[in-house]
């Protein structure tokens, strides 16, 4: 049996002076799987991703394959695990987009010419080649998001963690992002495990093999996205609503026709 790519057991964490956010969270992610984590505001989705790359100390255990996430292994694991922040603006710190994308490669010891070639190739793939020499703060929110993603993808991570990836993207940018993330294993020619936290339930529906619902410091459901997103009662019990776009699809409509008042609401 293949061991999970990410194995989280009894994870405990709380910010100083605040109630514990996770109290004994368990989660497995299989190699090559795309897992969507959904949950209401403040349930700890972004924090969970930060814990997965060791940005905060936590209780319990996190393993990548058989390697535990401990201080001696941090540097090696961070080469394999890429995190794209929710706020891309703070993730871009080099003077130009090209240099920012090449930053991680140069730190990995690649020669400048090689790093530049790979960075330019990644920018081309992500549709930002014309902005290579622009300073990051001059980009729009969507462009900054794609530039941040390019900076992480260019390092060819085994595990990609994305915090609200579709935030600030226009519909076309969002569709391109979904296509890119879906096509990632083929582009990189190997399986890429993706963990995506999002309020964009359509994105989770379109992109993920499995959706996990996070609430009260625990994973309360972990099932295929269509099963989770159809369960309006479960979503409502945990502060979420089924996406309207999915409600419009025939399979999602409730069995009994809605009354007049419901129709007006929809």
């Amino acid at each position: 049996m293949i061991p999970p790519r990410i194995l989280i057991r009894r994870l405990r964490f709380g910010y100083p002076g605040q109630p514990e956010l996770f109290h004994g969270l368990d989660l497995d992610v299989q190699p090559g799987e795309a897992l969507g984590i959904i949950g209401s505001n403040g349930c700890g989705k972004s924090t969970l991703l930060c814990l997965l790359v060791g940005l905060h100390d936590s209780g319990g255990s996190i393993h990548f394959d058989d390697t535990p996430l401990t201080p001696p292994n941090l540097a090696a694991l961070r080469r394999r695990v890429g995190l794209v922040f929710q706020d891309s603006e703070t993730q871009l710190f080099m003077p130009t987009v090209l240099e920012d994308v090449a930053f991680g490669l140069l730190n990995q010891g690649l020669a400048p010419a090689q790093a530049e070639a790979r960075a330019r190739d990644m920018l081309r793939q992500i549709g930002l080649e014309s902005l290579a020499d622009r300073p990051p703060h001059q980009l729009s929110g969507g462009e900054q998001r794609r530039a941040a993603l390019a900076g992480v993808l260019v390092m060819q991570p085994d595990v990609l963690l994305l915090d609200e990836p579709s935030l600030n993207l226009d519909p076309r940018g969002r569709r391109q992002l979904i296509e890119l993330l879906d096509d990632l294993p083929r582009r990189l020619n190997r399986p890429v495990t993706r963990v995506i936290t999002s309020h964009d339930l359509d994105l989770v529906w379109d992109l993920c093999d499995r959706a996990a619902l996070l609430d009260g410091g625990q994973i309360v459901a972990s099932v295929p996205p269509d099963q989770l997103l159809r369960d309006a009662d479960l979503l409502a019990a945990h502060g979420l609503e089924p996406p309207l776009s999915l409600l419009a699809r025939p399979r999602i409509l409730p069995a009994s026709p809605p009354d007049q008042e419901d129709r007006q609401c929809i």
Binding site: L55, F85, D87, T90, Q91, L92, F93, N107
Partner: peptide, 10 residues
């Protein structure tokens, strides 16, 4: 956040 971004990219 900037410090985290720096650290995570080596």
């Amino acid at each position: 956040q900037v410090e985290h971004a720096l650290t995570l990219r080596g």
